[in-house]
Amino acid sequence: MPVGFSRSEVQAIAALANLELDESELDLFARQLGEVLDYATQVQNIDTTGVPPTASLGVRHEADRADLVQPSLDRDLALSNAPDASLEAGLFKVPRVIG
């Protein structure tokens, strides 16, 4: 079955992803996401009855480490790339969220 996307469906996905899309992007993505998902639906024809999913690849880890306090990133350095920060208060600043 072909996968079709309406502009309002694309808009809804964009809202979930925190992306503001313009008119031309809505049209473009409606078409392109449909094409890619159409191609991807071939996985649905594969019989996976009883097959467990692979979410991550298990590797052999070191034994548990001791839970010791270690030096970490200096606060001013951590704030140094922020577009808006108060170094004195040690805070990232965001636009006003309450009235």
């Binding site: 694309v10 996905i13 964009a14 992803a17 925190n18 992306l19 503001e20 899309l21 313009d22 992007e25 473009l28 993505f29 392109q32 996401l33 965001v94 636009p95 006003r96 969220v97």
Partner: peptide
């Protein structure tokens, strides 16, 4: 507002392929 700042920042900061894959 905060939510619009997020959405505009990401809209202007990411290129088309990154947006496509996030979508």
């Amino acid at each position: 507002d905060l939510k619009t700042m997020y959405a505009r920042t990401r809209a202007r900061g990411f290129g088309p392929e990154v947006k496509r894959r996030i979508m």
